[in-house]
Nucleic acid binder design. Structure first.
Length: 256
DNA sequence: ATGGCTTACAACGTAAGA
């Protein structure tokens, strides 16, 4: 069973690439972030033609998450419980014997800003939600764009980024609080090459210079992590024409 | 050099992303 996550930065613009990539990697489950589409505009037909069911928690212009699955999926939550939040950033589904929480964590804009405090509150509410889910869901996966580079090795230039949004200690502490629930960071559980990044700025030739950050993650409960066989980043789509600024992250699991 | 690029909106510039 192959599961993946990809921030596509507009599913409308990226649909041809998503369809191409689905054909190449054949994931069983794909979590998408930043679809930027209201649910009525979700491309059900094109995805069905490619062999995928879809579930979406969308909104126009910003945010929006969706999960694609080769087999039918059951929606468990379309927003983060415990937070009155009009932004569509979380979608929990049951698919392939897993409970999959797809997240698009707020960016935070700048340390100390109102959006930064919203990000910290969001991560705290996520922790509480996952703590509750873990009490009853043995095979749990949390995948998505966390907008946190957990450690300096996840940053191309740690000195330049020290203390900045995506890398600051308050954000890293809240990411660690997710791991402290017993979740494992699968790209850490399986050795990766150096410079294993998932995001490169569109500007200043960042991808060509490999100026990246690892901010997209797949976390797994102990039982799900035990079933994981490998995890990796597919940076190829970042080099395609008109790419998303994020690369997909994948994990393979033994069947339940 | 505090920028560089890309997207959505319905404006032909502004907001936001990371």
């Amino acid at each position: 069973m192959r599961l993946a996550t990809w921030n596509v930065n507009s599913l409308r613009v990226r649909l041809p690439q998503v369809l191409d990539w689905l054909g190449r990697q054949r994931p069983d489950v794909l979590c998408l972030q930043e679809t930027k589409l209201p649910n009525p505009a979700f491309p059900d037909r094109a995805l069905a033609a490619a062999g995928y069911h879809g579930a979406a928690s969308g909104q126009a212009a910003y945010n929006g998450v969706a999960v694609l699955s080769r087999r039918p999926l059951e929606v468990a939550a379309v927003e983060l419980p415990g937070l009155r939040d009009p932004q569509r950033r979380l979608l929990t589904v049951r698919a392939e014997g897993l409970t999959v929480v797809n997240v698009y964590v707020p960016n935070g804009q700048a340390v100390g800003s109102e959006k930064f405090h919203y990000k910290l509150r969001w991560l705290e509410a996520l922790r509480d939600y996952l703590a509750e889910l873990l009490e009853r869901e043995a095979r749990l996966v949390v995948a998505g764009d966390f907008n946190v580079a957990p450690a300096d090795e996840d940053v191309h230039d740690p000195r330049a980024w020290a203390g900045a949004v995506l890398c600051s200690e308050p954000e890293r502490a809240r990411f660690r609080a997710l791991l402290d629930l017993g979740l494992r960071d699968l790209l850490r559980a399986f050795p990766q090459p150096p410079r294993s990044y998932t995001w490169w700025d569109y500007r200043a030739g960042a991808f060509r210079r490999d100026h990246g950050l690892r901010i997209d993650h797949i976390l797994a409960s102990p039982a799900a992590a035990a079933a994981c066989r490998r995890a990796w980043i597919d940076r190829a789509p970042r080099g395609w024409e008109r790419p998303s600024d994020h690369a997909p992250v994948l994990a393979e699991f033994a069947d339940a």
